[in-house]
Simulated scan of single mutants.
Amino acid sequence: MNPATDSACFTLDFGFPVPGAAPTNGGWRLSWPTCLAMGIVNVTPDSFSDGGRDGEAALKHAWQLLADGALILDIGGESTRPGASPIDAATELDRVLPVIRGLSGSGAVLSIDTLKPEVADAALVAGAHLVNDVSGLRDPEMRAVCAARGAPAAIMHMRGEPRTMQREIHYDDVVAEVFGFLQAQAALALDAGVPGVLLDPGIGFGKTPAHNLALLRALPELTALGYPVLLGASRKKFLAALSGEPQAAAHTRDAASLAVHLHAARCGAALVRVHDVRSHVLALRVQSALEGA
């Protein structure tokens, strides 16, 4: 089984040297003592608060997230929001590679947020360390890339694809189906030689608000599976309804995002994927102190 958590520590294994990781008999292991933040760096035309329209703006944003205390930077060049249309690999690489190369040697742990094996492979060669695949490593080629490069992967649950995922949503038992999928995909990945995995229930990806709430309430079941859990609810639309501000713009949802992510940390999540890194880092530190961690 992939190393996950004990009472004091989360770990993730790599097949190559990674900033902050310690050598092991079979590779390198990154360890951290409590739930920390993964900062969002999107390099897409519709990004307005999490990167920017170009590589220069994204790099500036990335350096700020590092200064704010992000453990990992998650760099993406293709929008995966509901209704988003796919782009070709060349366009995606033109967006993300300059940012990855610009952060090479920065001491940051870099994640490539992509659905495409060819993008993941090129990003890892350019200096990324981790693959964040919202399609859940369904593509055997993606598992093969991660195994060959020695890169761990974040496995997320998504029904369908971003363009269609919010249409005709149905689950007989959303918790059993999502968690069962993640556990099965983790086993496939590790059997294929992927050195480590994170599990992400995919909040907002092919789920109704009721499904999202059910998954959030059941997070202790997911963290009990023995794999580190990544939770990303930052600024998602369902939070506006929960907070009573359904017309609120995305950037006004940070307080609601923080509430969900603190809940995830209390349930044993290893990482939260966020836009507002500084507020999350400070709040997670306070919560850790209150819990005596």
Rank of each mutant, 00 (worst) to 15 (best):
R143H: 09
R143N: 06
A144I: 01
A144Y: 02
A144D: 11
V145W: 11
C146T: 08
A147E: 10
A148I: 00
R149L: 01
G150R: 07
A154N: 14
A154L: 07
I155C: 08
M156I: 14
M158P: 01
M158D: 00
M158C: 03
M158V: 00
R159G: 03
R159T: 07
R159Y: 00
G160E: 02
G160K: 10
E161A: 12
P162G: 04
P162W: 11
R163D: 13
R163M: 10
T164M: 07
T164R: 13
T164K: 07
R167S: 12
R167G: 05
I169K: 00
I169Y: 07
H170W: 06
D172I: 02
D172T: 13
D172N: 11
D173T: 10
D173V: 11
D173C: 06
V174Q: 02
V174D: 06
V174P: 01
V175A: 09
V175R: 02
V178C: 02
V178N: 07
G180T: 04
G180E: 08
G180C: 12
F181S: 01
F181W: 05
Q183L: 13
A184Q: 14
A184V: 01
Q185M: 10
Q185H: 03
Q185A: 15
A186D: 01
A187S: 14
A189Q: 05
A189D: 06
L190N: 04
D191N: 09
A192F: 01
G193M: 12
G193S: 08
P195N: 03
G196R: 09
G196T: 11
G196E: 03
G196H: 08
G196I: 04
V197Q: 07
V197S: 12
V197M: 00
V197Y: 05
V197T: 10
L198D: 04
L198Y: 00
L198G: 08
D200G: 11
G204A: 11
G204C: 11
G204M: 07
G204P: 05
G206C: 09
G206I: 06
G206D: 04
T208C: 11
T208E: 08
P209V: 13
H211L: 04
H211W: 08
N212L: 11
L213F: 12
L213Y: 14
A214T: 10
L215S: 02
L215D: 02
L215Y: 07
L215Q: 06
L216D: 07
L216T: 04
R217E: 13
R217V: 15
R217L: 13
R217P: 00
A218I: 09
L219Y: 09
P220S: 13
P220Y: 05
P220Q: 12
E221G: 09
L222E: 08
T223A: 05
T223I: 06
A224D: 15
L225Y: 14
L225A: 14
G226S: 05
G226L: 03
G226R: 06
Y227M: 08
P228F: 02
L230Y: 05
L230C: 15
L231K: 04
A233V: 15
A233E: 04
A233G: 12
S234I: 07
K236H: 12
F238T: 06
F238P: 02
F238V: 10
L239Q: 08
A240T: 08
A240W: 09
A241C: 01
A241M: 13
A241L: 14
A241V: 13
